[in-house]
Design a protein around this nucleic acid. Sequence first.
DNA 1: TATTGTTATACTCTATAACTATA
DNA 2: TATAGTTATAGAGTATAACAATA
Lengths: 162, 162
Amino acid sequence: MANGRKSSSGRKSANVEPAARELDYSFLPELLGFHIRRVQIELWRDFVHRLDGEQIRSGEFSALALIVANPGISQIELSRALAVDKAHMVALLDALEKNGWAVRKRSVEDRRRHGLTATAAGRRALERLRKAMFDHEKKFTGKFTAKEFQALLLLLQRLYLG
Amino acid sequence: MANGRKSSSGRKSANVEPAARELDYSFLPELLGFHIRRVQIELWRDFVHRLDGEQIRSGEFSALALIVANPGISQIELSRALAVDKAHMVALLDALEKNGWAVRKRSVEDRRRHGLTATAAGRRALERLRKAMFDHEKKFTGKFTAKEFQALLLLLQRLYLG
DNA sequence: TATTGTTATACTCTATAACTATA
DNA sequence: TATAGTTATAGAGTATAACAATA
């Protein structure tokens, strides 16, 4: 077991130091979802505090990065690349447009599609945010060697690819 | 890089097969948060579909497991163990009580505290849900050898412990 | 003064269904 | 018929602040 706590055995001590007592985590440490959730919470909290004041949410950051790297990408392509519903992209794009970081342009080949491109301000913002993001992640990735980190990413990828 | 796509180079092909075109993920695959989020989404979707109809949410499941393993645990201890705010535990406990799975009992030693205990129905529900949960996770953990899975859990733990 | 539980509010992320305009 | 984008609604998770009862 990853988290070696399995005591149980009818603990009945008076509640003298309740906050500090050793808890029995039962089978929770054997669940992948338990650990993923904990990591996600820590990442989320650090992200919020470090990027406080920035007009960006994590989903918008990913979208902006993909738009900059793939000029003309459509909303549906973006939603597939990020594995979210196309409905979710609408408000997300609204926010990026409101910040002046990206623009929708109706495609001339297929008038149903919006070709998305980043503005110069959007590219500048992404560069600034990219640095802040890696700085934020350093707090976590700094706990690993490069080799360990690569191993972790490959294991994680296997969980959602194929 | 974990996800070996880095093309760019002025793609300008007419939008013939837009949904299938190779995307440039830029630096996103180098971000831990990107992979954690993708895994979390996949786990979440499978959890929702497999446990559809069950009167349980993932947070309630974890709480119930801890209550069964630690009879008399208080809400504040529970919130610390699960790394969420104590305010969040109120509605969560309300739901468990409404299901008849757990009860709050005012502590006699410290009348501010609620000692939490599971009912017989709560213990039965947990046993049933535990099986469903491991069955759900099997879809993901089945991609690994036991050794790989242990390695993954240890790497994840390092991210939120200490 | 500090802690436990509570209430209230707000924001983020995701899901689903139905609609429009285009193909 | 199918697709791209939109609108609307809902549920789940988290954060924060303030309060009452109790220590």
